[in-house]
Design a protein around this nucleic acid. Structure first.
Lengths: 158, 158
DNA sequence: TATTGTTATACTCTATAACTATA
DNA sequence: TATAGTTATAGAGTATAACAATA
């Protein structure tokens, strides 16, 4: 038994590395979403935007690669298109498909978002000594790589 | 500018420590929820259960301490009560209030849950060298403590 | 017949407002 | 009048099923 008495149950839970990792993930996402909001983006939108930039053309392909449901993608691409970040065109070679193309504004906002995320990460991890911060990055990458098939795609979703 | 070309945007995002921390948090929660499911619990239920065990008696108090909305708490306590883990009693001193008491079954499941979470954490972090695993725990705790007011309560919610 | 994108629908989670009973 | 718990309702976010166009 890992806890000594019921009254210590709260401290036991809150003190767990696993619990703290969940907390930290939420904080990281909350900070990122808040910082990206002024550009009409969330972390999830940004993920989709990088897919459009990375040369995954069809919506089906983007869905398979990211794990985001293809019906969910429709609304997200609507958002991105409304902000002028992407453009949908019928694929002349297969008129069922949409080619999702990054606009100039989309490319620009990707650069901006990278800077925004740099600042968010500095805010979150800046207080750490540089060596500890690098070590954290390596450790976290290692844990995820151990689990993921190829380590390239997200383990859960998005 | 942090990215060299639009086509590298995906690798840039996925390779960020911030992004990986979000991923890792999701993985940790997914594993915990899956392992706890057989006891009718989620991580969030477990958080509420530890509050009942920790001597926070009224639902209002539990809400304030955990950041979980008091209306959300109602349904969660219904779940816990249905599983026989807690019992609600009118406070004789203030008949508006409910005293939320841990049952024997609730105390038992808390012990079991602690073991379950130990296993989940071993599954997730076991592949790391012991020293690196300890260091990760300390680093993550430090980051959260730097942000939280007292460091005792969750920074975001639950 | 299968695939792509879309829409309609439903389900989960959470939050807001309103209600009751007590103080 | 204020507070504790509850219920009703609505809003995100996401998933499932059905549909139209195309292969």
């Amino acid at each position: 038994m890992s806890i000594t008495a019921p009254t210590d149950a709260e401290a036991d839970l809150l003190g767990r590395t696993g619990f703290r990792l969940v907390e930290l993930g939420k904080v990281a996402l909350t900070l990122a979403d808040a910082a990206l909001a002024e550009y009409g983006l969330t972390g999830r939108h940004l993920r989709v935007l990088t897919l459009a930039a990375g040369g995954v053309p069809s919506q089906q392909g983007m869905s398979e690669r990211s794990g985001i449901d293809r019906t969910t993608l429709v609304a997200m691409l609507d958002d991105l298109e409304r902000h002028g970040y992407v453009r949908r065109r019928r694929d002349p070679a297969d008129r069922r498909r949409h080619l999702v193309e990054l606009t100039d504004a989309g490319a620009a906002v990707l650069g901006t978002a990278a800077e925004v995320l740099d600042r968010v990460e500095d805010d979150l991890l800046g207080p750490l000594p540089a060596a500890e911060r690098r070590r954290l990055g390596r450790t976290v990458a290692k844990i995820l790589d151990d689990r993921g098939a190829g380590g390239e795609l997200p383990v859960v979703e998005c």
